[in-house]
């Protein structure tokens, strides 16, 4: 295997195929730790990880925190409402202050694209992107890749469909990057108002016909309709979206027998995904959550390996 020399994880754009595969392999080995009686190993003893979340999150934040704790790192949660940022401090100043306290890693989520990159350019601390605006959510894509590889044994040559609000989805952007790098064929589908112009340039196909998509794909990734971003009337109504693009048992009659249904969560049951499909035999939604923990352990382990020094080669 290759040598890991990344100090921060900002997006899947910057990872090559070998690096993505190394994260997946490491996660495979670390998954077993969570099945033990004592769910803790001493690998990151003495390291401090700060979770700096400017947007709400249950799954991702808990997953990162548990991942750090299972590797024996100390964690600090910064709730933005209670912090100095509500007194007008800038993101960068806050992060610089955290760095002055010698933290080893900052996991950041922010509504603005590029905030993790801004921190990484200005700080020596490891930075992990836990979602920046509509840009990327790299650990989500890694855990999706891991789940598919675990279930189907491969990524290369698979046909992957992504359906929903592609325009606002950082999950879709990271996944397109990851899938195409590992040799899967990606087709995106959704209402034309929620389809970013020029998306074909990332190497994906576009369809507006959800049944055509369902018929051909091995993996169907269903995205959440982000109701908080619907103020600008991208959709006539949520009900119409559910009727046209919502994945239900009826539409899945056209699917391959062993199709995988994935969703990054949180699910709007009855909107993008019907309850019977979400809980049904093809759904791997809860596997995704379990694997998310293993992926985040792998990311923490690999990144903190360079222990606060500049990346190799500098």
């Amino acid at each position: 295997m290759i040598e890991w020399n990344k100090h921060s994880l900002l997006d899947l754009r910057e990872l090559n195929k070998e690096e993505i595969e190394m994260v997946l392999e490491t996660a495979k080995s670390l998954k077993e730790v969570s099945l033990r009686e004592v769910k803790k190993v001493p690998a990151l003893r003495g390291k401090t990880v700060v979770l700096l979340f400017f947007e709400s999150s249950t799954r991702t934040r808990t997953s990162f925190e548990l991942a750090a704790k299972r590797l024996s790192a100390d964690t600090i949660n910064i709730a933005v409402n209670n912090s100095a940022m509500s007194k007008g401090e800038s993101v960068l100043d806050t992060a610089r202050n955290l760095e002055a306290m010698n933290v080893d890693m900052i996991v950041v989520r922010h509504a603005c694209a590029g905030v993790p990159n801004l921190l990484a350019q200005n700080l020596k601390t490891s930075i992990v992107n836990a979602g920046d605006g509509c840009r990327e959510h790299p650990t989500q894509a890694l855990l999706d890749l891991f789940t598919i590889k675990e279930k189907l044994g491969r990524i290369e040559g698979l046909k992957v469909g992504i359906v929903g609000d592609i325009l606002h989805s950082r999950v879709a952007r990271s996944n397109i990057m990851g899938f195409t790098k590992l040799g899967a064929e990606v087709t995106v589908c959704g209402p034309s108002t929620l389809m970013p112009p020029g998306i074909e340039s990332t190497g994906v196909k576009v369809t507006y016909n959800v049944l055509e998509l369902i018929e051909q794909c091995d993996v169907l990734m269903v995205l959440r309709i982000q109701q908080e971003r619907q103020r600008d009337k991208y959709l006539p109504s949520i009900r119409e979206y559910a009727r046209m693009f919502g994945i239900n048992k009826e539409k899945l009659r056209h699917a391959k027998k062993d199709i995988l249904i994935m969703h990054p969560g949180p699910t709007n049951r009855g909107v993008e995904l019907s309850a019977e499909v979400a809980d049904g035999e093809y759904s791997v939604i809860l596997d995704q959550v379990a694997n998310g923990l293993a992926i985040r352990m792998a990311v923490l382990y690999l990144l903190l390996g360079t222990h606060g020094k500049a990346p190799a080669g500098e």
């Binding site: 495979k28 080995s29 670390l30 077993e32 730790v33 690998a43 003495g46 390996g305 360079t306 190799a312």
Partner: peptide, 23 residues
């Protein structure tokens, strides 16, 4: 048993050693 996660030199090595599965 893979002992990588328990090594006492993890803070000394330049890059993290590869972890293998414990079974």
């Amino acid at each position: 048993l893979d002992i990588t996660l328990y090594r006492d030199d993890l803070t000394l090595v330049a890059t993290q050693p590869v972890i293998h599965e414990t079974l």
